[in-house]
Design a protein around this nucleic acid. Structure first.
Ligand SMILES: [Mn+2]
Ligand SMILES: [Mn+2]
Ligand SMILES: [Zn+2]
Ligand SMILES: [Zn+2]
Lengths: 142, 142
DNA sequence: GTGTAAATGAGGACAGTTTTCATTTATATT
DNA sequence: AATATAAATGAAAACTGTCCTCATTTACAC
Protein backbone atom coordinates (compact mmCIF):
# COMPACT_ATOMS: atom_id res chain seq x y z
CA UNK A 1 0.00 0.00 0.00
CA UNK A 2 2.23 2.78 1.21
CA UNK A 3 3.53 4.38 -1.89
CA UNK A 4 7.12 4.44 -0.67
CA UNK A 5 7.63 0.73 -1.12
CA UNK A 6 6.83 0.99 -4.79
CA UNK A 7 9.15 3.96 -5.19
CA UNK A 8 12.00 1.97 -3.73
CA UNK A 9 11.30 -1.17 -5.75
CA UNK A 10 10.99 0.83 -8.91
CA UNK A 11 14.36 2.36 -8.15
CA UNK A 12 15.88 -1.09 -7.79
CA UNK A 13 16.49 -0.59 -4.08
CA UNK A 14 15.63 -3.13 -1.42
CA UNK A 15 12.84 -2.05 0.86
CA UNK A 16 14.50 -1.40 4.19
CA UNK A 17 13.39 0.45 7.24
CA UNK A 18 16.02 3.19 6.97
CA UNK A 19 15.05 3.87 3.38
CA UNK A 20 11.37 3.95 4.14
CA UNK A 21 11.89 6.26 7.05
CA UNK A 22 14.16 8.67 5.22
CA UNK A 23 11.66 8.85 2.41
CA UNK A 24 8.90 9.46 4.91
CA UNK A 25 10.79 12.30 6.57
CA UNK A 26 11.29 13.93 3.19
CA UNK A 27 7.60 13.62 2.50
CA UNK A 28 6.16 14.77 5.78
CA UNK A 29 8.58 17.47 6.86
CA UNK A 30 7.32 20.95 6.36
CA UNK A 31 10.49 22.33 4.81
CA UNK A 32 10.98 20.86 1.43
CA UNK A 33 14.77 21.32 1.52
CA UNK A 34 16.61 19.33 4.16
CA UNK A 35 20.24 18.69 4.93
CA UNK A 36 21.40 15.18 5.79
CA UNK A 37 21.74 16.39 9.35
CA UNK A 38 18.15 17.69 9.30
CA UNK A 39 16.94 14.30 8.13
CA UNK A 40 19.04 12.56 10.73
CA UNK A 41 17.68 14.69 13.55
CA UNK A 42 14.12 14.27 12.36
CA UNK A 43 14.65 10.52 12.41
CA UNK A 44 15.95 10.64 15.96
CA UNK A 45 13.00 12.75 17.02
CA UNK A 46 10.61 10.29 15.51
CA UNK A 47 12.29 7.56 17.50
CA UNK A 48 14.29 5.92 14.72
CA UNK A 49 17.85 4.95 15.50
CA UNK A 50 19.40 5.34 12.09
CA UNK A 51 23.04 6.25 11.69
CA UNK A 52 24.10 9.46 10.02
CA UNK A 53 26.27 7.51 7.59
CA UNK A 54 23.21 5.58 6.52
CA UNK A 55 21.30 8.78 6.00
CA UNK A 56 24.04 10.04 3.70
CA UNK A 57 24.18 6.74 1.87
CA UNK A 58 20.46 6.55 1.42
CA UNK A 59 20.15 10.13 0.25
CA UNK A 60 22.93 9.60 -2.25
CA UNK A 61 21.23 6.45 -3.53
CA UNK A 62 17.95 8.28 -3.79
CA UNK A 63 19.68 10.93 -5.78
CA UNK A 64 21.12 8.31 -8.12
CA UNK A 65 17.69 6.80 -8.47
CA UNK A 66 16.16 10.14 -9.30
CA UNK A 67 13.98 10.18 -6.19
CA UNK A 68 15.62 13.24 -4.70
CA UNK A 69 17.83 16.01 -5.93
CA UNK A 70 20.72 17.58 -4.14
CA UNK A 71 21.50 21.27 -3.93
CA UNK A 72 25.10 22.17 -3.19
CA UNK A 73 24.78 25.38 -1.34
CA UNK A 74 27.56 27.89 -1.31
CA UNK A 75 30.47 26.68 0.70
CA UNK A 76 29.59 23.67 2.71
CA UNK A 77 26.62 21.48 3.20
CA UNK A 78 24.15 20.10 0.77
CA UNK A 79 20.40 19.99 1.04
CA UNK A 80 18.07 17.44 -0.45
CA UNK A 81 14.54 17.62 -1.72
CA UNK A 82 12.08 15.16 -3.16
CA UNK A 83 12.29 15.21 -6.90
CA UNK A 84 9.11 16.53 -8.44
CA UNK A 85 10.08 16.10 -12.06
CA UNK A 86 10.22 19.79 -12.78
CA UNK A 87 13.53 21.57 -12.91
CA UNK A 88 13.73 24.72 -10.88
CA UNK A 89 16.25 27.04 -9.30
CA UNK A 90 16.43 28.63 -5.87
CA UNK A 91 16.32 31.87 -3.97
CA UNK A 92 17.99 31.74 -0.56
CA UNK A 93 17.51 34.12 2.32
CA UNK A 94 20.93 34.90 3.76
CA UNK A 95 19.30 35.96 7.00
CA UNK A 96 16.92 33.15 7.94
CA UNK A 97 17.89 30.44 5.50
CA UNK A 98 14.53 30.21 3.83
CA UNK A 99 14.61 28.66 0.39
CA UNK A 100 12.15 29.56 -2.33
CA UNK A 101 11.90 28.02 -5.75
CA UNK A 102 11.47 29.56 -9.15
CA UNK A 103 11.45 28.65 -12.79
CA UNK A 104 12.48 31.05 -15.49
CA UNK A 105 12.38 30.00 -19.08
CA UNK A 106 14.28 33.03 -20.28
CA UNK A 107 17.23 32.16 -18.07
CA UNK A 108 17.10 28.50 -19.02
CA UNK A 109 17.20 29.42 -22.65
CA UNK A 110 20.01 31.94 -22.30
CA UNK A 111 22.12 29.36 -20.52
CA UNK A 112 21.82 27.01 -23.43
CA UNK A 113 22.62 29.78 -25.84
CA UNK A 114 25.73 30.74 -23.86
CA UNK A 115 26.96 27.16 -23.68
CA UNK A 116 26.46 26.77 -27.38
CA UNK A 117 28.23 30.02 -28.10
CA UNK A 118 31.25 28.83 -26.15
CA UNK A 119 31.23 25.40 -27.73
CA UNK A 120 30.20 23.71 -24.49
CA UNK A 121 27.96 20.69 -24.42
CA UNK A 122 25.96 21.73 -21.39
CA UNK A 123 25.16 19.04 -18.86
CA UNK A 124 23.63 21.05 -16.06
CA UNK A 125 23.73 24.32 -14.25
CA UNK A 126 23.43 25.69 -10.78
CA UNK A 127 21.84 29.03 -10.06
CA UNK A 128 21.22 30.54 -6.66
CA UNK A 129 19.92 33.99 -5.97
CA UNK A 130 20.86 35.21 -2.50
CA UNK A 131 19.06 37.94 -0.70
CA UNK A 132 16.90 38.94 2.21
CA UNK A 133 13.41 37.54 2.17
CA UNK A 134 10.33 39.62 2.65
CA UNK A 135 9.82 38.57 6.24
CA UNK A 136 13.40 39.29 7.26
CA UNK A 137 13.23 42.72 5.63
CA UNK A 138 10.18 43.55 7.70
CA UNK A 139 11.75 42.37 10.93
CA UNK A 140 14.71 44.66 10.36
CA UNK A 141 12.51 47.69 10.43
CA UNK A 142 12.08 47.48 14.17
CA UNK B 1 56.95 51.15 -7.81
CA UNK B 2 55.54 47.67 -7.99
CA UNK B 3 51.85 48.17 -8.13
CA UNK B 4 51.15 45.47 -5.56
CA UNK B 5 52.38 47.54 -2.66
CA UNK B 6 49.85 50.23 -3.39
CA UNK B 7 47.10 47.68 -3.73
CA UNK B 8 47.88 46.34 -0.30
CA UNK B 9 48.20 49.72 1.35
CA UNK B 10 44.99 50.88 -0.23
CA UNK B 11 43.32 47.82 1.19
CA UNK B 12 44.58 48.67 4.65
CA UNK B 13 46.84 45.63 4.74
CA UNK B 14 50.46 45.67 5.82
CA UNK B 15 52.90 45.05 3.04
CA UNK B 16 54.34 41.64 3.78
CA UNK B 17 56.22 39.18 1.68
CA UNK B 18 53.50 36.51 1.75
CA UNK B 19 50.92 39.02 0.59
CA UNK B 20 53.10 40.37 -2.18
CA UNK B 21 53.92 36.90 -3.37
CA UNK B 22 50.36 35.64 -3.35
CA UNK B 23 49.30 38.68 -5.30
CA UNK B 24 52.11 38.11 -7.75
CA UNK B 25 51.11 34.48 -8.30
CA UNK B 26 47.57 35.56 -9.02
CA UNK B 27 48.86 38.08 -11.52
CA UNK B 28 51.38 36.00 -13.38
CA UNK B 29 49.79 32.57 -13.43
CA UNK B 30 48.28 31.61 -16.73
CA UNK B 31 45.04 30.26 -15.32
CA UNK B 32 43.01 33.05 -13.95
CA UNK B 33 41.15 30.81 -11.50
CA UNK B 34 43.27 29.22 -8.80
CA UNK B 35 42.55 27.21 -5.70
CA UNK B 36 44.38 27.97 -2.46
CA UNK B 37 46.32 24.79 -3.06
CA UNK B 38 47.24 25.95 -6.57
CA UNK B 39 48.57 29.20 -5.16
CA UNK B 40 50.43 27.35 -2.44
CA UNK B 41 52.11 25.02 -4.92
CA UNK B 42 53.02 27.87 -7.23
CA UNK B 43 54.63 29.62 -4.29
CA UNK B 44 56.66 26.55 -3.44
CA UNK B 45 57.75 26.20 -7.04
CA UNK B 46 58.88 29.77 -7.10
CA UNK B 47 60.96 29.10 -4.01
CA UNK B 48 58.77 30.80 -1.43
CA UNK B 49 58.23 28.98 1.83
CA UNK B 50 54.79 30.23 2.71
CA UNK B 51 52.41 28.13 4.76
CA UNK B 52 49.13 26.93 3.37
CA UNK B 53 47.28 28.49 6.29
CA UNK B 54 48.77 31.83 5.38
CA UNK B 55 47.69 31.40 1.79
CA UNK B 56 44.13 30.80 2.95
CA UNK B 57 44.27 33.74 5.31
CA UNK B 58 45.70 36.08 2.73
CA UNK B 59 43.23 35.04 0.06
CA UNK B 60 40.37 35.58 2.46
CA UNK B 61 41.71 39.00 3.38
CA UNK B 62 42.09 39.88 -0.28
CA UNK B 63 38.53 38.85 -0.80
CA UNK B 64 37.42 41.08 2.04
CA UNK B 65 39.43 43.92 0.57
CA UNK B 66 37.87 43.40 -2.85
CA UNK B 67 41.16 42.45 -4.47
CA UNK B 68 40.05 38.95 -5.36
CA UNK B 69 36.79 37.12 -5.64
CA UNK B 70 36.06 33.60 -4.58
CA UNK B 71 34.08 31.03 -6.52
CA UNK B 72 32.56 28.24 -4.49
CA UNK B 73 32.52 25.39 -6.88
CA UNK B 74 30.08 22.54 -6.57
CA UNK B 75 31.04 20.22 -3.79
CA UNK B 76 34.25 21.19 -2.17
CA UNK B 77 37.02 23.57 -2.86
CA UNK B 78 36.98 27.19 -3.77
CA UNK B 79 38.91 29.00 -6.45
CA UNK B 80 40.08 32.57 -6.42
CA UNK B 81 40.64 35.12 -9.14
CA UNK B 82 41.85 38.67 -9.26
CA UNK B 83 38.95 41.03 -9.14
CA UNK B 84 38.60 42.94 -12.37
CA UNK B 85 35.68 45.08 -11.39
CA UNK B 86 33.31 43.49 -13.84
CA UNK B 87 30.83 40.93 -12.64
CA UNK B 88 30.73 37.73 -14.62
CA UNK B 89 29.62 34.14 -14.31
CA UNK B 90 31.29 30.87 -15.21
CA UNK B 91 31.17 27.85 -17.45
CA UNK B 92 33.00 24.82 -16.08
CA UNK B 93 34.16 21.81 -18.00
CA UNK B 94 33.31 18.73 -15.98
CA UNK B 95 35.91 16.77 -17.87
CA UNK B 96 39.09 18.87 -17.74
CA UNK B 97 38.17 21.53 -15.22
CA UNK B 98 38.59 24.44 -17.60
CA UNK B 99 36.77 27.56 -16.52
CA UNK B 100 35.41 30.10 -18.95
CA UNK B 101 33.75 33.37 -18.14
CA UNK B 102 30.69 35.01 -19.55
CA UNK B 103 28.44 37.96 -18.99
CA UNK B 104 24.79 37.94 -19.90
CA UNK B 105 22.71 40.98 -19.33
CA UNK B 106 19.47 39.17 -20.00
CA UNK B 107 20.15 36.72 -17.19
CA UNK B 108 21.29 39.47 -14.85
CA UNK B 109 18.11 41.35 -15.46
CA UNK B 110 15.86 38.34 -15.07
CA UNK B 111 17.45 37.55 -11.74
CA UNK B 112 16.60 40.95 -10.42
CA UNK B 113 13.10 40.63 -11.72
CA UNK B 114 12.66 37.25 -10.04
CA UNK B 115 13.98 38.51 -6.72
CA UNK B 116 11.65 41.47 -6.88
CA UNK B 117 8.72 39.27 -7.76
CA UNK B 118 9.34 37.13 -4.68
CA UNK B 119 9.88 40.11 -2.41
CA UNK B 120 13.58 39.39 -1.99
CA UNK B 121 16.14 42.10 -1.61
CA UNK B 122 18.80 40.48 -3.76
CA UNK B 123 22.36 40.66 -2.52
CA UNK B 124 24.15 38.42 -4.96
CA UNK B 125 23.83 35.34 -7.05
CA UNK B 126 25.87 32.40 -8.15
CA UNK B 127 25.53 30.83 -11.55
CA UNK B 128 27.58 28.01 -12.95
CA UNK B 129 27.00 26.26 -16.22
CA UNK B 130 28.53 22.80 -16.29
CA UNK B 131 29.34 20.95 -19.45
CA UNK B 132 32.01 19.50 -21.69
CA UNK B 133 34.26 22.00 -23.33
CA UNK B 134 35.01 22.04 -27.01
CA UNK B 135 38.42 20.48 -26.65
CA UNK B 136 37.17 17.64 -24.45
CA UNK B 137 34.37 16.91 -26.88
CA UNK B 138 36.86 16.55 -29.67
CA UNK B 139 39.12 14.27 -27.69
CA UNK B 140 36.25 11.93 -27.00
CA UNK B 141 35.79 11.25 -30.67
CA UNK B 142 38.87 9.07 -30.82
C1' DG C 1 13.57 -22.00 6.26
C1' DT C 2 18.15 -21.20 3.85
C1' DG C 3 21.61 -18.95 1.32
C1' DT C 4 23.57 -14.97 -0.48
C1' DA C 5 24.08 -10.52 -1.89
C1' DA C 6 23.01 -6.22 -0.18
C1' DA C 7 22.32 -2.93 3.66
C1' DT C 8 23.47 -1.15 8.09
C1' DG C 9 25.97 0.99 12.27
C1' DA C 10 29.93 2.51 14.48
C1' DG C 11 33.76 4.60 14.13
C1' DG C 12 37.57 6.06 11.61
C1' DA C 13 39.21 8.47 7.52
C1' DC C 14 39.22 12.31 4.62
C1' DA C 15 39.54 17.03 2.19
C1' DG C 16 39.31 21.56 2.44
C1' DT C 17 39.52 25.11 5.44
C1' DT C 18 40.06 27.59 9.86
C1' DT C 19 41.88 28.27 14.44
C1' DT C 20 45.36 28.44 18.09
C1' DC C 21 49.38 30.07 19.94
C1' DA C 22 54.17 30.92 20.17
C1' DT C 23 57.35 33.52 17.28
C1' DT C 24 58.50 36.93 13.87
C1' DT C 25 57.78 41.19 11.36
C1' DA C 26 56.03 45.82 9.61
C1' DT C 27 55.51 50.18 10.76
C1' DA C 28 54.74 54.16 13.88
C1' DT C 29 57.27 56.59 17.37
C1' DT C 30 61.11 58.14 19.61
C1' DA D 1 68.57 54.10 13.99
C1' DA D 2 66.62 51.79 18.01
C1' DT D 3 62.19 50.70 20.23
C1' DA D 4 57.51 49.51 21.04
C1' DT D 5 53.51 47.28 19.66
C1' DA D 6 49.93 45.66 16.99
C1' DA D 7 49.59 42.69 13.31
C1' DA D 8 51.19 38.74 10.51
C1' DT D 9 53.11 34.24 10.16
C1' DG D 10 54.08 29.02 10.52
C1' DA D 11 53.15 24.67 12.36
C1' DA D 12 50.16 21.85 14.05
C1' DA D 13 45.84 20.87 15.79
C1' DA D 14 40.89 21.45 15.27
C1' DC D 15 36.81 21.50 12.54
C1' DT D 16 32.93 20.32 9.30
C1' DG D 17 30.50 17.88 6.18
C1' DT D 18 30.82 13.68 3.95
C1' DC D 19 32.48 9.10 2.75
C1' DC D 20 34.60 4.60 3.68
C1' DT D 21 35.69 0.20 6.13
C1' DC D 22 34.41 -3.78 8.05
C1' DA D 23 32.00 -6.68 11.14
C1' DT D 24 27.11 -7.72 11.73
C1' DT D 25 22.40 -7.82 10.26
C1' DT D 26 18.72 -8.01 6.91
C1' DA D 27 15.86 -8.52 2.61
C1' DC D 28 14.39 -11.44 -0.54
C1' DA D 29 14.94 -15.25 -4.17
C1' DC D 30 14.82 -20.04 -3.89
MN1 LIG E 1 13.90 23.02 -4.69
MN1 LIG F 1 36.08 34.45 -13.30
ZN1 LIG G 1 14.66 35.41 5.61
ZN1 LIG H 1 37.31 20.28 -20.98
Amino acid sequence: MSMERQDLRKAGLKVTLPRLKVLEILEVTEQRHLSAEDVYKALLESGEEIGLATVYRVLTQFEGAGLVSRLSIDGGHAVFELENGEHHDHLLCVSCGEIQEFVDEVIEERQHAIAKEKGFQMTEHSLYIYGICKRCQEERKY
